[in-house]
Design a protein around this nucleic acid. Structure first.
Length: 495
RNA sequence: CGGAGUGUAGCGCAGCCCGGUUAGCGCGCCACGUUCGGGACGUGGAGGACGGAGGUUCAAAUCCUCUCACUCCGACCA
């Protein structure tokens, strides 16, 4: 019994955050590195990220973007050009002050060479708006140079005090799109286009429903005019911002003097956008679907979509079963599925079942002597744990159908949960009550002021996650102040 | 960055309060045999000098000081 407990994960219902931490480690996604605040993304976890990256990259290219790469280091003076921007990021910047080490006089190792102090300190990018807009100045002269639609895949550093694997680490991987446009309308369209790309990615590939909305000024990106976001709900009832897209107006164009000549020959500042998603999506993916037995991965992102476990007693049975399993595996690979034929003779089937469940493989096929005799396969879904016996002749069409079905099932399950966790409240008492007992999104009237938002945050730890797009307008009174309001907004405690 | 806690074998822990044989347990690992349709069992093995540094003492995993790392709670944030 105690051996079972060592192998099992903590229960979500008992300790959600240790369930998450253990799952990330036991499923081989990532671990803490010896460097403070930084994680090692392990091969299995990185494969999932690669799939996210490849899919998003394709979607960016389909919407006309190209990739480029800008420097890791940003001169301190660049960061200070845009007042709100530097204000927002100053507190969490890693700074490079020297460029050389030397042997310590006492022979104790190496020390920073005080002679090698940089003229101007370099900031390790927390985001790249400044260095990119500084570059855009020389790339953009005419309306003919616009729009400029660029993305970069990069690492960034934000010196966080408290970190959690994938959700918040000092260094993380992301993509940041930076676009420049001739008109405000076009830039706004771009901002929303990419928001929709993110939402589509979340729903079609991560099987994670998201709410598209706009942030309040308090939650806005430092330097943006408007920040749009996709918000997801985790199983513990906390919200998670999964992606953001910013309309930058002319803020960075003015800060970096990026102007262009219009058709009419007039000099105007360029309009900008930026948008990004990060390895934080890994955290969202894990917390959206997984259960007490381990990961539940959507078929579109699973490193292994189908695992085949052979079952046998004797050596003869082993060979016969593995031959059959190898045939099935080859057939499925030919049909485009990623398949693992787990032919390790060092582990028992039950062990393999549990291990692949922990790792979230969407579909398991088991083949034993009985199946050989009957030309069947036992198929087991990870998402529902349902098993059924299928004919091995129709394995490809079965798997194909099942991949779609599993995606639909986990999406719908997450969506039903999310929808059930949006609660409308009309009094502050009810607001606090729901927050404490149920969690999730709370849809409530707000008087539109930062003061109210901040007071609610201070008193309840809930923030306004977003004002949903196409939000229905209705007369009401602010849940805190009772002042008139025209619409409900979504509050939640968030990651 | 403030509060609390933890650091002993690859992993999870006991031992510490009340210093004293050769530091112990479970899982994992290695070998052999029996097993194999839901995390097998038996037998026999290997593996640590107790996060790091300093101190007290005849003697330190155990007491003291400092330091590093991690976890949880708070403030901040993708």
């Amino acid at each position: 019994m105690s051996t079972q407990q060592n192998k099992a994960l903590p229960k979500r219902s008992e300790d959600y955050s240790s369930w998450y931490n253990e799952l990330v480690k036991k499923a081989d996604l990532a671990e803490h590195s010896s460097i403070k605040g930084c994680m090692v993304i392990k091969p299995y976890g990185f494969t999932i990220w690669e799939k996210m990256r490849d899919t998003l990259d394709r979607m960016f290219k389909e919407t006309g973007h190209v990739n480029a790469y800008f420097p890791l280091f940003i001169p301190k003076s660049y960061l200070s050009r845009e007042a709100a921007h530097v204000e927002g990021f100053a507190k969490e910047c890693a700074v490079v002050t020297h460029y050389r080490l030397k042997n310590a006089p006492d022979g104790s190792g190496v020390v920073v060479d005080p002679e090698a102090k940089l003229e101007e300190e370099l900031i390790v990018r927390p985001t790249s708006e400044t260095v990119i807009w500084n570059t855009y100045r020389s790339w953009i002269q005419s309306y003919r140079d616009l729009p400029l639609l660029i993305n970069q895949w990069a690492n960034v550093v934000r010196w966080e005090m408290r970190t959690r694997l994938f959700l918040r680490t000092a260094e993380f991987l992301w993509q940041e799109g930076h676009t420049a446009h001739a008109t405000a309308e076009e830039a706004r369209e771009e901002t929303l286009r990419m928001l929709h790309v993110y939402a589509e990615f979340a729903e079609k590939h991560m099987a994670m429903p998201v709410i598209k909305g706009i942030k309040t000024p308090n939650e806005r990106f430092a330097g943006a005019v408007d920040t749009y976001c996709i918000e997801a709900l985790m199983q513990d009832g906390k919200a998670l911002q999964a992606g953001t897209s910013h309309f930058l107006g002319q803020n960075f164009a003015k800060a970096f003097d990026v102007r262009f000549t219009t058709k009419e020959g007039v000099q105007e500042y360029v309009w900008g956008t930026s948008w990004g998603v990060s390895t934080r999506l890994m955290g969202a993916l894990i917390m959206a679907h997984s259960d007490d037995d381990g990961l539940v991965l959507p078929p579109n992102l699973a490193p292994i979509q189908v695992v085949i476990v052979p079952i046998y007693r004797s050596q003869e049975e082993m060979h016969a079963v593995n031959d059959k399993a190898a045939q099935i595996a080859a057939q499925l690979r030919k049909a485009g599925f990623s398949v693992k034929h787990d032919d390790r003779d060092t582990h028992k089937p039950g062990f393999k079942f549990a291990e692949w469940e922990l790792k979230g493989v969407p579909l398991r096929l088991a083949i034993g002597p009985k199946d050989l005799a009957n030309n069947t396969i036992e198929a087991a879904r990870r998402d529902t744990k349902a098993k059924e016996i299928i004919s091995s002749d129709r394995v490809c069409e079965y798997v194909s159908m099942m991949m779609e079905k599993i995606h639909q099932t986990i999406y719908q399950r997450a969506k039903d949960f999310r929808d059930s966790m949006i609660t409308c409240v009309d009094s502050y008492e009810e607001f606090k009550e729901v927050l404490e007992t149920k969690g999730g999104f709370i849809s409530a009237h707000w008087d539109g002021t930062s003061e109210t938002e901040e007071r609610i945050k201070a008193e309840t730890k809930a923030t306004i996650r977003c004002i949903p797009l196409n939000n229905p307008q209705e007369e009401g009174r602010c849940v805190l102040t009772g002042k008139p309001s025209t619409q409900r907004v979504l509050f939640a405690r968030a990651y």
